[in-house]
Design a protein around this nucleic acid. Sequence first.
DNA 1: CGTCAGTTATTGAAGTTTCAATATAAGAGT
DNA 2: ACTCTTATATTGAAACTTCAATAACTGACG
Lengths: 162, 162
Amino acid sequence: MVTDARPAPGQAEPRWLTDAEMTTWLTITQLMMLLPTALDRQLRDDAGLTHAHYRILAMLSAEPGGSMRMTRLARSTGTTTTRLSHAVSALEDRGWVVRRACATDKRGQIAALTEEGQAFLRAAAPGHVAEVRRLVFDQLSDDDVVRLGEITAKILPALTEC
Amino acid sequence: MVTDARPAPGQAEPRWLTDAEMTTWLTITQLMMLLPTALDRQLRDDAGLTHAHYRILAMLSAEPGGSMRMTRLARSTGTTTTRLSHAVSALEDRGWVVRRACATDKRGQIAALTEEGQAFLRAAAPGHVAEVRRLVFDQLSDDDVVRLGEITAKILPALTEC
DNA sequence: CGTCAGTTATTGAAGTTTCAATATAAGAGT
DNA sequence: ACTCTTATATTGAAACTTCAATAACTGACG
């Protein structure tokens, strides 16, 4: 379907998708549309932030010192520095994160989780985990979980080399 | 990491994620952040629309008559009627889609692909397919493709029952 | 040292998505 | 026929993301 449109005359013909690839692609894209929306909805309703913003807090909380430099934080949460800049500003307005200057590189900025941010995350995490379990892991066998991790891990490198 | 924050005292303790689940979850969420962005970038640069909008055109083109009712189109592209309404308005402004009244249900609206929309899609598809292949299917074995489709298909029902 | 390409981070405007509210019509039950 | 609930689709405001432009700094090289 996504690839049903045939190339215009004179266009280079790409290697088209096989039936198996097409079936899988339809499923993946559908999941890609629905899962973020579902996670956003639960977090918005119960905690008042998006999944992308939640990820930033969660990533910081896992770091010793609860802080990380912007570029590295962006990379590890799978986002861009622009988006992170805006997001951290929003999180700062709510008092969950603060910015500090980097000691060794004057260009650098360090985002740090506040006490309030920690507390907020502790309160929001159980509900979020329950939803992740309900939507994803309750549907899969132990074997599925491992295999899904292995296969998706193969795709990541192509997405990060840029 | 996403679930490292422990529940506050007095909170109900959820069943936490196992190590294997956590590893897979980190990979999935990273993929969920990066893949849509990568698809959007290619389509924006080469064709000037987002992946979500492209999907609408592609879904319509696969339909006999090149048209579908709004609610069904929303469901089949994994979006909401609100988002679809805005999106179709934007696609209408560009001349790729038109709205028609539904004959059998006066509430209904039907989105239909125009000639220009068809032509545009034919021109944009090869580049998009090439990118999908490069980012996803070139990284996977035939076996991976089938298995990935099977596993992700197990998750979809939980996301659509609502 | 001074220059220059590359890195880091931010800003504002434009585009997209979400939420809440609204308008209209269909269908079920009385 | 009448009422009530549900379904369909849209709108405007607020929030988030993207793009392009900008500012400030680093490190390498002549």
